[in-house]
């Protein structure tokens, strides 16, 4: 039995679609279901939906053998897992954003829910910052004077534009990744390889 942790939301739908196209059993059962755990009829795969930021935790601790998680979470938390595949789904960008001209002072105030990514980005270019860690609605921070800029994930940039913010710097592209528990990869290699092949079929 291979345990697969999927992130709740649109990304799970797209991953399940790809798995179903590849003939992976049970992928259609989870749609619209209120069950937290769904097994395929053949008994080979078990899916469960979790908060996106928790997928890596489930995989790291072996509760899930594999999982789908955004590269932003991996870069921020650096779990000791295998990152086997770039699914090329959920494409977006990690950026520095703010009002035009922001962040050009000696010491920039940066609001973010990715403190490790933000710290590394500015340290790599030798710039000192004051970091403000937030959990959500990051775009609000520069609008009310909490910060000069934000470091956040951006998809279309629509929310930024609607609030008079622009992308000041691009940090790194982000997309969904297939991760695996290192020990699981030793004992369930065949099953994990099958999932890799199934998820590779579209988009790569």
């Amino acid at each position: 039995m291979l345990n697969i942790a999927l992130p709740k939301g649109r990304l799970a739908d797209r991953v399940l679609e790809r798995l179903a196209l590849a003939g992976c059993g049970g992928a259609s059962l989870i749609e619209g279901s209120r069950r937290l755990v769904v097994e395929d009829p053949e008994g080979n795969l078990r899916y469960f939906l979790v908060k996106p930021s928790d997928v890596a935790v489930y995989v790291l601790h072996g509760a899930a053998d594999v999982g789908i998680v955004g590269r932003d979470i991996l870069l921020e938390t650096k779990p000791d897992v295998y990152e086997l595949l770039d699914l090329k789904l959920g494409a977006c960008r990690m950026v520095v954003a703010g009002p035009p001209g922001a962040g050009e002072g000696v010491r920039t105030r940066v609001a973010t829910k990715y403190p490790n990514i933000a710290r590394k980005h500015y340290a790599d270019s030798g710039r000192e910052i004051d970091l403000i860690a937030l959990n959500g609605s990051i775009e609000l921070a520069p609008l009310v004077g909490l910060s000069d800029v934000i470091v956040d994930v951006v998809e279309t940039g629509g929310t930024l534009r609607d609030n008079g913010l622009i992308i000041l710097e691009e940090i790194i592209p982000i997309s969904a990744r297939l991760i695996a528990n290192i020990a699981s990869a030793k004992f369930k290699a065949e099953g994990i390889d099958d999932i890799m092949k199934a998820l590779s079929r579209e988009g790569n």
């Binding site: 790291l60 601790h61 072996g62 528990n181 290192i182 020990a183 699981s184 030793k186 004992f187």
Partner: peptide
Amino acid sequence: YIKGIPGM
């Protein structure tokens, strides 16, 4: 690694 144990 031991089967069933998630870490090294």
